[in-house]
Design a protein around this nucleic acid. Sequence first.
DNA 1: AAACCGTGTTACGGAATGGTGACAAACAGG
DNA 2: CCTGTTTGTCACCATTCCGTAACACGGTTT
Lengths: 226, 226
Amino acid sequence: MKPKILVVDDEPEAVELLEFNLKQAGYAVSAAGDGAAALKKARAQTPDMVVLDVMLPEMDGFELCKNLRLEPATSRVPILMLTAKAAEIDRVLGLELGADDYLTKPFSPRELLLRIKKILSRGAVAEKPREQMRFGDLVIDLPRHLASWKGKTIELTATEFKLLTTLAQRAGRVQSRDQLLRDVWEYDSLIDTRTVDTHMRRLREKLGAASKHLDTVRGVGYRFVE
Amino acid sequence: MKPKILVVDDEPEAVELLEFNLKQAGYAVSAAGDGAAALKKARAQTPDMVVLDVMLPEMDGFELCKNLRLEPATSRVPILMLTAKAAEIDRVLGLELGADDYLTKPFSPRELLLRIKKILSRGAVAEKPREQMRFGDLVIDLPRHLASWKGKTIELTATEFKLLTTLAQRAGRVQSRDQLLRDVWEYDSLIDTRTVDTHMRRLREKLGAASKHLDTVRGVGYRFVE
DNA sequence: AAACCGTGTTACGGAATGGTGACAAACAGG
DNA sequence: CCTGTTTGTCACCATTCCGTAACACGGTTT
């Protein structure tokens, strides 16, 4: 599972540039153009990191940073601040705001990626994906894009495979349909759809006996059990 | 009011060194030499933070960390791990253990104090909902969406589960029916309050012996007791 | 002691939920 | 351009779940 990064900047070109570079580097990126939207997205997605421009309309970066720290859901998410003035640095990193690092504009993409990597590797969150998983007779191999049951490979389509791996990597924890739509389909909008159900059905059909690992939690979502 | 810090290490000299530095910096310090003693002290004092050496006789640091997280009284206390090997870091900070930060030996006192200050400044505000709770033989696991009694899972519907967790997270405090309707059902209007009663009954029935945790407070509401 | 209040208990019909089969659009490969 | 596969959506149905009403019970008040 790629680390999720939330980019907050009011200039569309800046967002686009950041987004391109981060995606290139293998991160999952979402963006927000103002403080209110950023708070909302952060709450909903709990990203692994927030990259945040100080200059924002309405709620400025400082304010947003404080708010992120105040909410239980986001208080521990690392924050990287983008600032124009070197004079602000002390305040940014101080206890009052508690950002994890800063960058002064202009900066190179390489510089940015280095900072991000450093913060994430420091271990704030960073749940690195397991490349191969085995649950009894069920083996899932990510790089080979293969799933097998008792040594016999199971033919899965791309979506089915991604759904299976997403569930398996969070084994034990229930995933809501919305979460799955975001993580597997990469939808932002919350369309009410039975799509997830249908794909679960197809997945179960193909897995056969191995489908005992896929639990339905009525009223909540689905869960992979070991 | 000085923040209380519990230091856990089996080497007396190490404890002394830590104690000196922390007291110098204005913290109230207590110490424990092994896992069992640490658990007992943590329960009794509920410190603001635990500094914990991984290498311990009997119960090692990992085990202790897990146990601290499981008990309601200490599950939210930030933990700073002292570890010798960089290889262990992932596990320490991962979901399984959930320490808040780590330091590799050897480290300077200044470094230690910086980490502590940072964690405390953040954790003071962050009352994040507990993901797992244990009350005697009753275990409630939010992400897995599972409740169990003496290791045996209890089948609960979505609403019943939410009702149980809502009460358990505010253990000790009485919740009025209106409050429960707001928090569990997310209703604004005042509908028939007997709905809560009915669900409490179903919950008690399914919990069996564990229903001793659910108190009725006549004329007020319900309360979860430990 | 009787009326009363708050809660426990039981039962039931409507509503929500998820499984299933079918289908058409989108897509990929030759 | 054709063909077979994949994928999102829909309608239908069995099942489960939930809210309400009605009644029973015990403690409290008058």
